[in-house]
Write a protein that binds this DNA or RNA. Structure first.
Length: 562
RNA sequence: UGGGGCGUCGUCAAGCGGUAAGACACAGGAUUUUGGUUCCUGCAUUCGGAGGUUCGAAUCCUCCCGCCCCAGCCA
């Protein structure tokens, strides 16, 4: 049964919302997904997207897409575009509710002025090092800035001049006047505006001062009428500050912040810093490298939106630190593709087979079902002829007993075709390498098993050499060899999997695959799911990416050895 | 170390005082022209630990232990 639903069982956030609704604390639900456009979305973001948009849909509310673009360094239109593309691809729609924190700069400035007027903020001339020093430590309270008790007038004047560009970068900041002795360091007069002469990708040079996250985020939520502001656990310490700003500046309905545990995935890394490093150092080919846990990477790899949604649903939402096994993701991908991907035959590592008793000039068109359990997906025709290719792995000269494939003297079923028997393995006299198999076929076995009752245990895939389509196939595996690549000193380079990408060329595909279009997904029978690469495929030579292998119980048996 | 948060199967995760859901993984078996799929079966006498309250505790109380987050003019 495919778990392609997004049916969201309940979780502690939905419980809170249910309760808020019951108490009439809110009448309709409004959430938001607030990425900073300084990188590509990854599977962790996808969890948040599914959560926020999923809740909005479930409660007939709204979910805003808001670019949290309050720090111009690193932010760009490229990222805005990729974020929007990824969210749409995941299957969510913000309709006309696209917002930018940068659109609120004027409004936020007014909020800051209001804070100053109420004696709740001041312009501080300590430099960054001094501010850190004055902040104190976990165990010692901070000290008050010497600039803390300026008059409202002076603060108003100074803040206006900060905006006007009269002071150099870093020379002054606006700080909230809260409590330098607070046990919560976040509350020790946090900086809310800094001077930064950096062009903003949307506001250009209009501003030289930019609001900080803690100030901008909660007020943006309030401006947009967000009811439930869902974020990750590391912001839990910031919640008192979130509430402080909102209480000081917002009357009426106030948004509420709820934190959940961010996703960690085994054998991969979701840190923005590391992802950037992988791209910059050329360890991967780009943000959309099929090995990347980015939405763009997974899309190119061939993962489906439904599979990713199912994954986000099945892992749940809670506050426990977690490390979700990547096998859960792979299961969701297989589950979806098993149901929807048409079957085809492809030989990745070709070994030539001559059917000695099959006429040279004969070609049969054999009918093959596109899906074993779903006849509605139809059939296609595959050409059979005297010279075929089979998978190298499907022949062993001296096989163990449980090896149900080709070996000298052994019989095997060719999928959708005849039973053949291996008569001889032809070797290269120089290397001893098997270059060709000489086989015979049993003409009576097309429709069923041999009439004499011989049991044929093995079934292998094949393609007709003459009709085959040559292609490049890229076989991907996990990027890292250990479950937690950042464990220890955080140096992941020693854990990189050298075999995370194997390029196989030429591979031979059955004729029908000549029509495959970019992005199409197939199951190559007995091998796995494969997707036409939309960047590197050419008319002459298609490129397929392996999405995920099939479960392979033979691998387990073989690994045990016998 | 001060503050904030979290500890339920190998991994996620339900559970909200009435006697431990489900998923992945793993292990058996059945069916199978994919060693795939599907279908059965098994997999926490116990919930970080120790006390206590109660007829009854993973759920309430006390103490202890462990892990994560916070000292950016990042988000």
């Amino acid at each position: 049964m495919a778990t392609t639903t997004t049916a969201s069982s309940s979780d502690f956030i939905r419980d809170i919302i249910d309760d808020d609704l019951r108490r009439c604390a809110v009448s309709t639900v409004a959430t938001r997904f607030p990425p900073e456009p300084n990188g590509y979305l990854h599977i962790g973001h996808a969890k948040s997207v599914c959560l926020n948009f999923g809740i909005a849909a479930q409660y007939s509310g709204v979910c805003n897409l808001r670019m949290d673009d309050t720090d111009p360094s690193g932010e760009s239109l490229e990222f805005v575009d990729s974020i929007m593309k990824d969210i749409r691809w995941l299957g969510f729609d913000w309709r006309d509710r696209l917002f930018y924190a940068s659109d609120y700069f004027e409004k936020l400035y007014e909020f800051a002025v209001e804070l100053i007027k109420n004696g709740d903020a001041y312009v501080c001339e300590l430099n960054a090092d001094q501010i850190r020093e004055y902040r104190g430590t976990f165990t010692e309270p901070g000290r008050q800035s010497p600039w803390r008790s300026r008059s409202v007038e002076e603060n108003l004047d100074l803040f206006a001049r900060m905006r006007a560009g009269e002071f150099p970068d870093g020379s002054r900041v606006l700080r909230a006047k809260i409590d330098m002795a607070s046990p919560n360091i976040v509350m020790r007069d946090p900086v809310i505006y800094r001077i930064k002469r950096q062009p903003h990708y949307r506001t250009g040079m209009d501003w030289v001062i930019y609001p900080m996250y803690d100030f901008a985020h909660c007020l943006s939520d309030a401006i947009e009428g967000i009811t439930h502001s869902i974020c990750t656990l590391e912001f839990e310490n910031n919640r008192p500050l979130y509430d402080w700003f909102v209480e000081k500046l917002i009357q009426g309905k106030r948004p509420r912040q709820i934190e959940f545990a961010r996703l960690n995935l085994s054998y991969t890394v979701l840190s923005k810093r590391v992802l950037i490093e992988l791209v910059r150092r050329g360890i991967v080919s780009g943000w959309d490298d099929p090995r990347m846990p980015t939405v763009a990477g997974m899309r190119r790899r061939g993962y489906t939106p439904a599979a990713i949604r199912a994954f986000c649903s099945v892992i749940g939402v809670a506050k426990n630190d977690n490390l979700v096994d990547v096998s859960v993701l792979e299961h969701c991908v297989r589950d979806d593709l098993n149901e929807h991907a048409p079957r085809a035959m492809a030989v990745l590592r070709p070994l030539k087979v001559i059917i000695e008793n099959y006429p040279e000039d004969r070609v049969e068109e054999l009918e093959a079902p596109n899906h074993p359990r779903n006849p509605e997906m139809g059939t296609r025709t595959v050409p059979f002829s005297r010279v075929l290719y089979v998978e190298c792995d499907d022949f062993m000269e001296d096989p163990p007993k449980k090896f149900h494939r080709l070996a000298p003297g052994r019989e095997v079923r060719l999928r959708n075709a005849y039973v053949i028997q291996c008569r001889e393995a032809v070797k290269d006299p120089a290397t001893g390498e098997v270059t060709e198999l000489r086989c015979t076929y049993d003409p009576d076995t097309l429709e069923g098993p041999p009439s004499d009752g011989r049991k044929i245990k093995g079934v292998i895939h094949w393609v007709s050499a003459e009709h085959a389509v040559a292609a490049e196939v890229r076989v991907y595996d996990r990027l890292f060899m250990v479950p937690e690549p950042l464990d220890g000193d955080g140096d992941f380079t020693g854990h990189l999997n050298p075999d995370s990408r194997k390029i196989l060329n030429p591979c031979f595909l059955e004729r029908s695959l000549a029509d495959a279009a970019a992005g199409d997904r197939y199951q190559f029978e007995r091998l796995g799911y494969f997707c036409v690469d939309d960047r590197d495929s050419t008319e002459k030579r298609p490129v397929f990416n392996r999405v995920v292998s099939l479960r392979d119980s033979w691998e387990k048996i073989a690994a045990r050895g016998d």
